[in-house]
């Protein structure tokens, strides 16, 4: 059933939100965002199978490209922050607080 795939996607998305909300490690937060993107991809593919059209596959490819760009930029920022403060705690990064 298609609904099972969608429910699995909801579960994975909720786990991703939980990781973003409750963890303080930069890498874990970043990988939780990746998990949320993956859950969205699963929903796209499941809806594409439900309607038997290929638009969902194209959107999933776009999401993958955005995730790759995000990974490159976010990891560069994490390297800079680690160089600057030598910490991985998101609470330490308050440079924009003024």
């Amino acid at each position: 059933m298609i609904a099972d795939y969608l429910i699995l996607s909801i579960i994975l998305f909720c786990i991703g939100i939980l990781g973003v909300v409750s963890r303080r490690n930069v890498f874990t937060v970043f990988m939780s965002i990746e998990l949320m993107l993956n859950a969205a991809n699963l929903a796209f593919i499941a809806f594409s199978r439900l309607h038997e059209s290929m638009d969902g596959h194209v959107l999933a490819m776009m999401v993958m490209a955005v995730a790759a760009a995000e990974a490159a930029l976010a990891l560069a920022v994490v390297i800079l922050l680690h160089k600057h403060k030598s910490k991985l705690d998101t609470n330490m990064f308050s440079l924009l607080k003024g």
């Binding site: 991703g16 490690n25 990988m31 939780s32």
Partner: peptide, 20 residues
């Protein structure tokens, strides 16, 4: 689901990445 929970629960990011 086990992989996602492992990512959120693992203390070291290396274990979390393997779970992901």
């Amino acid at each position: 689901i086990i992989g996602g929970l492992g990512l959120v629960l693992a203390r070291h990011p290396m274990n979390g990445a393997i779970c992901l």
